Simulated scan of single mutants.
Amino acid sequence: MKKGRILGVLLAAAMAFGGVTGAVGTRSVKADGSSNYKFDKQYLLKAGDSGTAKSPAETFLFGKNGKAELYKVQNTKFHTLNDKEISDTSDVMEKGIPQTITIGNASFEEGQATIQGTKKEVTITSVDATKYPSAGYYFYKFQETAGDSAGVTYNTDPYYIRVAVAYNSDTKALEINNVTMFNNEWKKVSEIDNFYSAGKLTVQKIVTGNMANSDDTFDVKVTFTPKAGTKLRSTIAGSTSDTSLGNVTITGNEDGQTAKFKVKAETEVEFTNIPEGVSYKVEETRANGYDAPAYKVNTKEGNKGTIVGENTDKAIITNNKETLIDTGVFMNNLPYLLVLIFAAACGVGFVVSKKRR
């Protein structure tokens, strides 16, 4: 009995110290007696132009159906004084320990991933302390649920929540002293970060050849396709350097989008906020009298590419219209030319003859 009382005092002191140094967030007691703790979810712009990169709206989820599951326990009544190792839950699964605690979610609106980061609080709701069989440390494991928005990096590392249950000698009851979160390296953390990355694409038109007309227009389309397993939820924007040709129209859905527009010599069309990992294909309708369009993407032949965050890809479409111009004498005019030469010779001969006489 005396030994157990000493253990309880030591554990309570240790937990009180841990509550000062390792609490996740501000504690608030709900009406049903359970306790809430919070950690921060931060949404950051990892790569992209801060003026044009606009992250999709996103809700980050945690655990299995919002639950962190019992992982290990330590310093409970099932341990001896010298037992400092954390016990696997298989040893105590039938000991009446709460098997899960609840983790909320964090929702962000479109464009809230910024260089500075936007923070939202995620609530950890532990069960009532009286549900635990004894004082001790109870560890719960969870992971962020991987989403499928193109360009978004999800943090799927394992995280651990330690619920410290202590005996209060004044109230003669158990209470939750603090809740602490650890990363997969068992370092105390109070924040989980997520990132958004986007890039750009510029389409340029070049016209060559002696029969080309700089005012000739060409129809172009660019298709954007998200990486397998992801959805294109970002708003891709397109603008042209020659507004007299009309606007860039973009249609489609989460499975892919298509941009259509007109260009002429020296026109440039820029696309922004293309999520990292999205592939594109540039195609032009062949124009009358012109050779088939030649494509080059980032100095390489071809009309396809994949966006890398913060980079600006460049696609060049070249159209050529060339005709060989014959500068020689037309043979069908030769007889008339000979007649004129003969007539001129006769006239000169007549004048010379008359002058002699």
Results as ranks from 00 to 15, higher is better:
Met1Gln: 14
Gly4Leu: 13
Leu7Asp: 07
Gly8His: 04
Val9Gly: 10
Leu11His: 06
Ala12Met: 09
Met15Lys: 05
Phe17Arg: 15
Gly18Phe: 08
Gly25Asp: 02
Thr26Arg: 13
Ser28Glu: 14
Lys38Ala: 09
Tyr43Thr: 00
Tyr43Gly: 00
Lys46Cys: 00
Lys46Asp: 00
Ala47Tyr: 06
Gly48Tyr: 00
Gly48Arg: 00
Thr52Ser: 13
Ala57Ile: 08
Glu58Lys: 02
Lys64Cys: 01
Lys67Pro: 01
Val73Ile: 13
Gln74Met: 10
Asn75Ala: 12
Asn75Asp: 07
Thr76Pro: 04
Leu81Lys: 13
Asn82Ala: 14
Thr89Trp: 06
Ile97Cys: 03
Ile101Gly: 02
Thr102Ser: 14
Ala106Asn: 05
Thr118Trp: 06
Lys119Asn: 13
Lys120Met: 12
Ile124Tyr: 02
Lys131Trp: 09
Lys131Cys: 05
Tyr132Asp: 00
Tyr132Trp: 11
Pro133Thr: 04
Ser134Met: 07
Ala135Asp: 04
Lys141Thr: 00
Gln143Pro: 01
Ala146Asn: 12
Asp148Cys: 05
Ser149Tyr: 03
Ser149Val: 03
Ala150Gly: 04
Val152Pro: 01
Val152Met: 04
Tyr154Met: 01
Asn155Trp: 03
Asp157Thr: 02
Asp157Lys: 04
Tyr160Gly: 00
Val163Ala: 04
Ala164Leu: 07
Ser169Leu: 12
Thr171Val: 11
Ala173Pro: 03
Leu174Pro: 02
Ile176Gln: 03
Asn177Asp: 09
Asn177Leu: 08
Asn178Met: 07
Asn178Ile: 01
Met181Val: 05
Asn183Leu: 09
Asn183Val: 07
Asn184Phe: 05
Lys187Leu: 08
Lys188Glu: 07
Ser190Asn: 12
Asp193Val: 00
Phe195Thr: 02
Tyr196Leu: 03
Lys200Gly: 01
Thr202Tyr: 02
Gly209Phe: 03
Asn213Gln: 13
Ser214Ala: 13
Asp215Tyr: 15
Phe218Ser: 01
Val220Ala: 05
Val220Tyr: 01
Val222Gln: 02
Phe224Ile: 05
Thr225Arg: 07
Pro226Asp: 02
Pro226Ala: 08
Ala228Thr: 13
Gly229Glu: 08
Thr230Gly: 05
Ser234His: 04
Ser244Thr: 14
Leu245Asn: 06
Gly246Asp: 10
Gly246Phe: 15
Asn247Tyr: 15
Val248Arg: 04
Gly252Asp: 00
Glu254Ser: 11
Glu254Gly: 04
Ala259Gly: 08
Lys262Glu: 13
Ala265Gln: 14
Val269Met: 09
Val269Gln: 06
Glu270Ala: 13
Glu270Trp: 09
Thr272Trp: 01
Pro275Ser: 09
Tyr280Asn: 00
Tyr280Phe: 15
Glu283Leu: 11
Asn288Val: 13
Gly289His: 03
Gly289Cys: 10
Asp291Phe: 05
Ala292Glu: 13
Pro293Gly: 08
Tyr295Leu: 03
Lys296Met: 06
Glu301Asp: 15
Ile307Phe: 07
Asn311Asp: 12
Ala315Thr: 06
Ile316Phe: 10
Ile317Arg: 03
Glu322Pro: 08
Leu324Cys: 10
Leu324Lys: 15
Asp326Phe: 11
Val329Gln: 14
Tyr336Arg: 12
Leu338Val: 14
Leu340Val: 14
Ala344Asp: 11
Ala345Asp: 09
Val352Ile: 15
Lys354Gln: 11
Lys355Thr: 10
Arg356Pro: 07
